[in-house]
Amino acid sequence: MFTSTKNTQRKKRQELIAKYLLMTMTLLIILPLILIIFYLIYQASPILSVDFLLKNPIRGMRDGGIWAPLLGTIYLVLISLLIATPIGVFAAVYLNEYARESWLTRVINLAVVNLAGVPSIVHALFGLGAFVLFAGIGRSILAASLTLAIMTLPVIIASTKEALAAVPVAFRQACWNVGATRWQTIREVVLPNSISGILTGVILQVSRAAGETAPIMFTGAVFYKAIQEGDLLAYGLLDQCMALSMHLFTISTQVPDVPVALPYGTAVVLLGVVLLVNALAIVLRFKIRSRKKW
């Protein structure tokens, strides 16, 4: 019969210690954050209401709601989405469907990785230099959205590439064999079969763009701007706008004597938007995975 020697016992003990040590480390990363999020919600709870979302900030941003920054963020996100999605999807189509393994694809992939790694404040400098000054757009929603679009492009490229690569080659071959051209195959077979994966990337782009502050600080976001409450078309493309992230920065560092709940409320709304949008992407991904036909 096998009896455990001292050595195996020692090894067992070692293994248990390692396991629980690593588990504690993992929990130490996650638990405090969950507590922090609950604390944020707790502090914000007195102010959170529908009115908070739909009223402009008043009295030097020391009172009122977050309507103007909320609408500004929606504008920035949607416009950057409109710019980044076609470029990102086509770039991924090129990388996955057309490009062969060559130095060019290597350079492109490297560029995508680097684009994702450029500090957000450098994107801000780029946006200021290229769009605001060189292109002469001026500080505006358009310039800020362009900056955000370029910054979030890698997110869309990466997830679209993954989605396209998941479509089996046999689908394409079948399509080519009935005489379809490359683009017809992509349009009729590849893209429809990967649409939910692409959508996941788009959703992640939204969450990234909604949370960024530095890139819009000098390209189009302002500290304060009053707009018509309840008017969804209150901003023009060349107007400057408020944004949730910028607003949180302003009221928590630049404005004295702000009531405590106000920045907490803004933080919770911003965090809520970003996390909900992300959760949507995750749910969508699980759905695709469980429904795969091939």
Partner: peptide, 30 residues
């Protein structure tokens, strides 16, 4: 049409390189 779309896809494909260079160029320029 196919040729034009393929060119468009190609341009989007290499756009990332342009953007990285663009970032360096415009930050350097200022």
């Amino acid at each position: 049409k196919e040729w034009m779309i393929e060119k468009l896809i190609w341009i989007c494909g290499i756009s990332a390189i342009f953007f990285v260079f663009g970032i360096f160029f415009f930050v350097f320029r200022e």
